[in-house]
Design a protein around this nucleic acid. Structure first.
Lengths: 208, 208
DNA sequence: GGCCGGATCAGCCAAAAGGCTGAGAGACCA
DNA sequence: TGGTCTCTCAGCCTTTTGGCTGATCCGGCC
């Protein structure tokens, strides 16, 4: 039986070669190509038809990882894609899964975990790192922590550094209403100050 | 003549093995040890006395890279340390250089650049990636806008959402001093509130 | 029709943050 | 030696923010 063919996509050469070395230790896995951007990934898939694409979400320039996943899946709905990235941001996880990723691994994952994810991906299995999974579970268990559209709008403006007065003016609501919304947002995010809310929002949702 | 001995410090296994593979292609460079945390790095240096320590700043748990550099340099002022990290944040650069780093490389650096930095470090030369260098130049042109190491440290903690009291406790200074530093930071960043400072810092510095 | 969640607003009070001035200690440099 | 920079701290005052309670309005939904 032939080995599982893999395409690596990451804009960092050292990460690619590290992952290649790691996967190379497995006789049933073979890295057949590498790409350093979303664009390159698309052409590399055309050329090599890898069984699995292992992709970083953060690409320095051009198309980002999410967009690349979406395009890959548009062209071939059977294409297995694994996300292999540094940060476990709620927003990124949701967006990646939505775009069609089969699994979501963090870069500090154990080698065995990575091997298992690659093998699982070709069988259509979904594999994700424990921290990622726990985040998703928490979202499912606690729908109370989901922001309403208006709250999300406020939070987004909050991360631009606006004061309550400015928020009110921008949204055509009174300062009192702003404060009410903020109180709800703080409760849902589990913080007590606007500074912590901003920090949490940016780190958790990938806002910037 | 013997090879340049190197200790790799990064909490991501794939990055370590990638870097090791890359450096292994050079006959005059030898990776003699690896560490996945600041604590491990300290003991590994004791044991192997590497000529150069190549270190990521962002360590998942425990001592961060900056702290590790400081401790290494306290024990041996001749220890060459190269920072090898993902983001070119102003604050991190200033703090790393202040802590005693000899060079500052980004993870997407070209292999030749990395080799040159390692070779330069043992001779006491300072090497940095082009984007990092340009940031420093810009700072030199506008010295009024350059944060002092202490201010950068505060700003970094600020982006974690801490209150003035918490900042004081964390840094072992009074709340009054915290407020003084913050006032200076706001002036240099051109903002008026901590929320805006956090937003600016994160967007401008790539902090997270 | 009644219930509920989301969005809107008000008032009151305590805590936190910010603006301002002034000042001492230590390092570094000309 | 004197000047400059950084870090440290204090007091005073105003503005902003956050916690709490209670209230109205509207659109879906059973």
């Amino acid at each position: 039986m032939s080995a599982i063919t893999v395409l690596l996509v990451d804009d960092h050469l050292v990460v690619r070669s590290g992952l290649k070395a790691l996967l190379g230790t497995q006789p049933d896995i073979e890295v057949v190509a590498e790409a350093s951007s979303g664009e390159e990934a698309l052409t590399a898939v055309e050329e090599h038809s890898p069984a699995v694409v292992v992709m970083d979400l953060a690409m320095g320039t051009g198309m980002d990882g999410i967009e690349a996943i979406r395009k890959l899946r548009e062209r071939n709905r059977r294409q297995a894609v694994l996300v292999f990235t540094t940060y476990d941001s709620d927003a990124d996880i949701v967006r990646a899964v939505d775009a069609g990723a089969m699994g979501y691994l963090l870069k500090d994952a154990a080698p065995e975990e990575i091997f298992a994810a690659v093998r699982g991906a070709v069988q259509g299995k979904s594999v994700m790192s424990a921290p990622v999974a726990s985040r998703l579970f928490q979202q499912l268990r606690n729908p109370d922590e989901v922001l309403t559209p208006r709250e999300a709008e406020l939070l987004s403006l909050l991360t631009e550094g606006l004061s309550n007065r400015e928020l009110g003016q921008r949204l055509f609501i009174s300062e009192a209403t702003v404060k009410t919304h903020l109180a709800h947002i703080y409760a849902k995010l589990g913080v007590e100050t606007r500074a912590a809310a901003i920090a949490t929002a940016i780190r958790r949702e990938g806002m910037r």
